[in-house]
Write a protein that binds this DNA or RNA. Structure first.
Ligand SMILES: [Mn+2]
Ligand SMILES: [Mn+2]
Ligand SMILES: [Mn+2]
Ligand SMILES: [Mn+2]
Lengths: 220, 220
DNA sequence: TAAAAAATTTAGACAATCCTAAAAATATTT
DNA sequence: AAATATTTTTAGGATTGTCTAAATTTTTTA
């Protein structure tokens, strides 16, 4: 088993997440931006991850994650999301408070720990933001979902996932009542700015911007 | 608040533990041995910890922990021991499996995390090895206890603390029935090798070496 | 108390990770 | 297609923490 340093794990996870949406090729600048670091540092790291066969790296062109790399990244994502569940379910953290702590906890090295944690939490399938938790087998099972911004008038869905982990966004969601599981009905769509008028749980109607709606996913 | 790196925290904690038994002055070699590193590396680190006023360091003489250093060390010890309780109580780790994982978990930076964990665990006072957990106020409350090796024939005590965290020792204790809380009666003391014959929970009688008895403490 | 031994520090290197500035390659304009 | 802009890499240096080997200081021994 090839071992990765704390920093290598963070880079690999970033590359995995950038790869996730089916992009064939990830660029140096994208990685630098995601990790708040400089492109020069990224170039250094890409050589190392390439040598460890976590990525295929072609100078000046870009980066592609390997199967081995994806498998390592998924283990880290598994740990991250299980810890997030722990923090919310057991320690009563709010969903906007968990990300930074999980960013550290995901690097703790112990298979026993993570499997016992999984058991203790009752083998959860999704994290507090609705993201799927990779299994111990290394597989990610996604549920079919659709962007709130892609619904049309009178469509109904149940909030299943938020795609933005920022504190500001999550606190905004809390404030207006957008939580995992709520029922959302599209009342109106303003073509001028693509904002939506939505009804939440048959109770209240609010207006949300396209910025917001494109980060929210629902199941139908 | 002065911040310490992961490595600085480990050094400071080692110095704290070496200081604990009232030693006025800790030596470079002792620290190196405890941390499995070389004296030269220790000398380097002592300069840094001294500059951060965690220790008083006199070249060629030795090291003394400052009040500030002790306070920082106690915060790390608090985290270490709370995580050990979590691993044993919630994740069903055996007491010989927790140390290395807690050694990593103790460095996670989040006050909210550790205070919520404390609450979640029901504000435990002792870790799985019977060591006292420093309070959020930074104070360590010890209970009076006595070394099993200092009991005399017919004395009775309740096992309250094991002073050795090694896997081999803890598994040995498990095997012979030495657990926190058991009642121990000294049946005989062999003056030749200072081994003890003890009765556990009025049920079984075993013989233990001085090596073992000096690592076991009881309350009377 | 002088020599030998042990403990400790310093000197010099190395690995990991980061940075800035300069160079090189690629992409976009005109 | 040449000039310009952007992206990416390399060069060189800083920081943290490690090590070995050599120098220095302290302690022990004879
Ligand atoms: Mn991380
Ligand atoms: Mn999440
Ligand atoms: Mn540690
Ligand atoms: Mn312990």
């Amino acid at each position: 088993m090839i071992s990765l340093s704390y920093t290598e794990e963070n880079y690999l996870k970033a590359i995995y997440h950038l790869s996730y949406l089916g992009k064939e090729c990830i660029t140096t600048n994208e990685i630098a931006e995601m990790l708040n670091t400089k492109p020069a540092s990224v170039s250094d790291m890409l050589k190392k991850l390439s040598q460890k066969e976590m990525i295929n790296y072609v100078k000046y062109y870009g980066v592609e994650i390997t199967d081995q790399g994806k498998s390592c990244a998924l283990k880290i994502v598994r740990k991250h999301r299980l810890w997030e569940v722990f923090l919310v379910e057991k320690l009563k953290f709010n969903w906007d408070e968990v990300h930074d702590v999980a960013e550290e906890l995901e690097h703790i090295q112990s298979n026993l720990l993570i499997e016992r944690l999984d058991h203790f939490l009752g083998f959860p399938k999704y994290d507090p933001h609705g993201d799927p938790i990779p299994g111990a087998d290394g597989l990610l099972r996604e549920k079919p979902q659709i962007g709130l911004c892609d619904l049309t008038i009178n469509d109904i869905g149940f909030l299943s996932n938020v795609k933005e982990a920022g504190v500001a966004f999550l606190q905004y969601c809390d404030k207006v009542g957008l939580k995992i599981g709520v029922k959302i009905k599209v009342i109106d769509k303003v073509s001028f700015d693509n904002s939506l008028e939505i009804e939440i749980d048959n109770i209240k109607t609010i207006s949300i911007s396209k910025e917001v709606s494109k980060n929210i996913f629902v199941t139908r």
